[in-house]
């Protein structure tokens, strides 16, 4: 960030915080994805903050940060372990894009490291239980909510709404995907009845949950949240494709499924399993779209290119899951 931006940011933070003598010490880019950037910002008074903003190139997602800020506030108020959000700036003239500032939280999120550890999050059983409690708090947020109006109307039948969305996504893709159709048709044939929607994080998985040795320190990445069947979050977390190779620990490669369920309350196991198949289909479709960003030239990237090669393995898993569920 150049000096002019930094000066404008300092002035803006002074006004927002009410601290006229605030100064910025260290500023370092923590992670820069295709869409977001996270900056560690140390300010006077010993405050450690994170500034989250959009990459200048992707300004089409104009309200992204404002929405995420609202979700973090709602989650914080519901007792979910999230970083406390402090200030939102929708003015693009300060640093070039909208941003918000939240308190910095310590911990480890990286999936492969988390699933290898027997002690992170307070140990496997305790951690899975905590994850269940976090999800229950998220799902205590129910529609309608004026502060979350941008999420749109809640679906009357979240499972069927999911199938319709996924088919629409497949129809937008360049190539047909018969295996994903096979999985979606199975989901349609076996869809559980309609259920009242709640706030679903929609990317609650190992890799997006920050842990330290005592427990969960932050639930991150709220940009996909929506109104849906709360079991969708449990299914996404438990899906084999998100266990980072540690398949025996069914709650995200971290801990036992039973501990997750116990922490959560009383989830409907059959619904969770339905959403685990749904999770494989959704992740495969996202992987296709990510590879397509590379193939189309929009964003040439080896990582995106390799993501495309994860699709056949996900398809194989989908075939095996459907086969087992159909009892062939």
């Amino acid at each position: 960030m150049d000096e002019a931006r930094r000066d404008r940011l300092t002035d803006w933070l002074r006004a927002a915080s009410g601290d006229a003598s605030l100064t910025i010490g260290r500023m370092a880019l923590l992670s820069g994805g295709a869409i977001q950037q996270n900056w560690a910002v140390d300010v006077s008074g010993g405050h450690e903050w994170v500034l989250r903003t959009d990459n200048a190139a992707t300004l089409a997602v104009s309200h992204g940060r404002a929405q995420e800020f609202a979700l973090l506030r709602a989650a914080f108020a519901a007792g979910v372990t999230v970083p406390e959000s402090l200030f939102l700036c929708e003015d693009r003239d300060i640093i070039g894009a909208p941003f918000f500032v939240m308190r910095r939280v310590a911990g480890t999120a990286a999936g492969f490291r988390v699933v290898k550890s027997d002690t992170l999050g307070g140990g496997r059983v305790a951690c899975a239980r905590s994850l269940g409690r976090e999800l229950a708090r998220i799902h205590s947020i129910t529609p309608p909510r004026d502060d979350l109006a941008f999420l749109g109307a809640a679906p009357n039948d979240p499972c069927r709404a999911f199938i319709a969305e996924q088919r629409a996504a497949l129809d937008r893709q360049r190539l047909p995907r018969p295996v994903l159709e096979w999985g979606l048709r199975h989901l349609e044939r076996t869809a559980p009845p309609a259920i009242p929607a709640a706030l679903v994080h929609n990317d609650f998985r190992t890799g997006n949950i920050m842990l330290d040795e005592t427990g969960v320190t932050a639930v991150l990445d709220w940009e996909f949240s929506c109104w849906s069947d709360p079991h969708a979050d449990l299914g996404w977390l438990c899906a084999k494709c998100w266990r980072f190779g540690n398949d025996a620990q069914e709650a995200g490669g971290i801990g036992p499924r039973a501990a997750l369920y116990e922490g959560y309350g009383t989830p409907d196991d059959a619904r969770v399993r339905w959403w685990e198949l749904a999770a494989h289909i959704r992740w495969a479709s996202i992987a296709v779209d990510q590879a397509e960003r590379h193939i189309s030239g929009l964003e040439r990237s080896l990582e995106l290119a390799l993501t495309g090669h994860m699709v056949p393995g996900l398809e194989w898993e989908i075939l095996r899951m459907v086969e087992a569920r159909d009892g062939r």
Partner: peptide, 9 residues
């Protein structure tokens, strides 16, 4: 899918 996996995964 088996043929696709033989290459990709």
């Amino acid at each position: 899918t088996r043929a696709r996996c033989a290459v990709s995964a």
